[in-house]
Design a protein around this nucleic acid. Sequence first.
DNA 1: GTGAAAGCGCTAACAT
DNA 2: ATGTTAGCGCTTTCAC
Lengths: 361, 361
Amino acid sequence: MGARVTIADVAARAGVSISTVSLVLNNKPTRISEETRERVRQAAQDIGYSPNKVAQGLRRRLTHTLGLISDSIATTPYAGQMLAGAQDVARENGYMLFLVDTGADPEMEEDAIAQMRAQQVDALIFAAMWHREVSPPSNLPKKAVYLDCFSHEAPRPSVIPDEVAGGRAAVQHLVDAGHTRIAYVDVDEGVPPVASELRHRGYLAVHEEHDLPVDPALHVKGASTHDGGRQAAEQLLALPASQRPTAIFCFNDRMAAGLYTALRCHGLNVPTDMSVVGYDDQQLVAAELYPPLTTVALPHYEMGKWAAQVALGIRAHAASDAPYLMPCPLITRESVASPPVGAPTHPGGEASKKHKGDHSF
Amino acid sequence: MGARVTIADVAARAGVSISTVSLVLNNKPTRISEETRERVRQAAQDIGYSPNKVAQGLRRRLTHTLGLISDSIATTPYAGQMLAGAQDVARENGYMLFLVDTGADPEMEEDAIAQMRAQQVDALIFAAMWHREVSPPSNLPKKAVYLDCFSHEAPRPSVIPDEVAGGRAAVQHLVDAGHTRIAYVDVDEGVPPVASELRHRGYLAVHEEHDLPVDPALHVKGASTHDGGRQAAEQLLALPASQRPTAIFCFNDRMAAGLYTALRCHGLNVPTDMSVVGYDDQQLVAAELYPPLTTVALPHYEMGKWAAQVALGIRAHAASDAPYLMPCPLITRESVASPPVGAPTHPGGEASKKHKGDHSF
DNA sequence: GTGAAAGCGCTAACAT
DNA sequence: ATGTTAGCGCTTTCAC
């Protein structure tokens, strides 16, 4: 854009050589008199000089740019906080962020990587909108880092959410509130997201730890949408009274919203008749449900920061190929209460201490 | 990153000078034998050469980068499609996108602009998350363009949604369905968004065109959230039966969701008991309500494209300072039906043709 | 203490 | 039809 003022202009105005200008403006430990330094700084200030980053980049072979390639985090209302995290650490460290969304198209991914290389980015983040395994193009730089995804074929430093711990936290919270019959509304998709099984693992672990029986009828599935949640809830509500859950742990907030709808249609109240915990802490959704949804937050912002920090070498990461597991905090709101009095605690209403390992199916 | 292969390497391998390489790789109309051209292309291909954009940028004084500064579109789940639009245009035209979110902090905005200039971006977009007037820093380049915002002090080409037409479309749709008592659930904020008044203008225009009376009691306000919508609905529902609306036009989808909640709590069904139209077509919200919400879409993607196109000079824009008004399409889903039979058509149940201009309050 | 000069990788006159 | 040369704006030895 306009700013055609170069280092030569500063030098001229300060009556020194351009190398002197460069030296003082970069605070090089070269011995230049404080007097000249001041004169140079003043001159630069006066004419509004700001170094041309492109020229600097060419010379220093460092562009102070960070590339972020994602399938669609930038263009989807879901995981934008990852961008926020990455952006913040970039800015704090004087980096600019190059962004490209590829729609997960391999050809575009490869092209995006080529573009990033051509632009001489100093570091690169390869991100996914939702936690999954990816197969990045072969031209992915060695120094890239994965954000919200990982790859076995092409391992790199990687951050993903600690889904198992998240699932545990959700279910433990329900158990703490007194629930023993807890349903898991799972997602039912062609390729189930890795999160699905991981969260369920957390669900099972808590059951095992508390010697709670696991009722297969309480593990229902549906599409990962509002409507999927609604339909899953209908399944649960169709169960005989003695078998019904008193609480539901839901794969995500969208489905939890569907749950709310179904429950309300049946005249059931959240949380007095049914407790529900979601997952994601989706912005503009979880906190806006009525009542506000207790849920497990996906640490998008923190993961974004982590990725940018290790990409820029500001943060060390373990040498192992194991992804870094970012904690998923439980966000307590108003959708959980004690079970209604008189609710059955176990199938048929008989309380029982089942032996461990009985929760397989 | 790795790619340390330069034009000199290609020249060496092809047995020509670097200028020849440059000439053929840039398809310059200089007469170089087809034979040599092929040899050069082959050599480049063989060693995986890709021109250093930084060096090119320095020399050509054109970096093929587009800067996008926003208050928070990238980090908020709301208007990400603007980014998508800008990104798509950038990519299609061989540009890379520099992104920075400033949180609307003037100091950060100024700094972001300075960074963009220093990076020698070829074009700049200044964007807002929601349609508003902005006061950009004084260092905003002359060639910048506004996206989803505008400024009187520092005019530039600008795109904003055609809110008046959107409001008209919504209310006209309701009138077409047979409604005559239509409420407007407005937003009640310290500084009301410019959209608020504009959409209301559309509401009034339709009433005037159809000689429909405008009942001030039907213009209620609340916070622009789920809960604000819920409370506004309660106000409407507290009206005597004869004064109740049969349809509600809502400032945004979040509030419409709150409306749904309140309606359901009162045992009212959408759309048979009450029709509702929202605004925004917010991703993962509007289509996921139950029933899916008929709403007016904010043309985020199209606005993003427009901004990028005029910023890059691919698209002409009118010389005037008037912002370009992007149409807001009505998205018809399932929240609108005819009014219930027997519903009053006007206050007190008496139908009436009021004279024009009677809708002031 | 400060300046001259070389060069980052590339483009574009200008030669040949 | 192709090569030589002079920079783009900056950093960084190396002289003085």
